[in-house]
């Protein structure tokens, strides 16, 4: 794949868990389930390399599937902020 000189896909790195932008509908469900406003979630900058890699924009909620040593798999959410 396009693995020439400067460009590489950071999503393949072992330290980077799976990031995905939640569709608006699911994002609303998440906020409702935890009874929180978006900015009460953990945040992620829109300039974050992982956020950029999946094309997340300000206002999106990113679903992160982490490999957890205790839970096996753990789902976390981050709200995309400007900057």
């Amino acid at each position: 794949m396009g693995n020439t000189s400067k460009e590489f896909d950071i999503r393949l790195h072992v330290l980077v868990p799976k990031h995905e932008v939640l569709p608006k509908e699911e994002a609303r469900e998440v906020l409702e389930r935890y009874k929180v406003a978006p900015h009460q979630l953990p945040l992620i900058k829109s300039t974050d390399p992982a956020a950029k890699a999946i094309g997340a924009k300000h206002g999106d909620i990113i679903k992160i599937t982490r490999n957890s040593p205790t839970a096996g798999k753990a789902i976390a959410y981050r709200y995309v902020i400007e900057r």
């Binding site: 950071i10 393949l12 790195h13 330290l15 980077v16 868990p17 992620i44 974050d48 982490r66």
Partner: peptide
């Protein structure tokens, strides 16, 4: 490129993002 790491957390944050920095 999938396994190479540094012990500088800020560098990881800048290159691989906040979730990678957490790990």
């Amino acid at each position: 490129q999938t396994r190479t790491v540094t012990n500088n957390i800020h560098e990881i944050e800048a290159v691989l993002g906040i979730e990678a920095a957490r790990n």
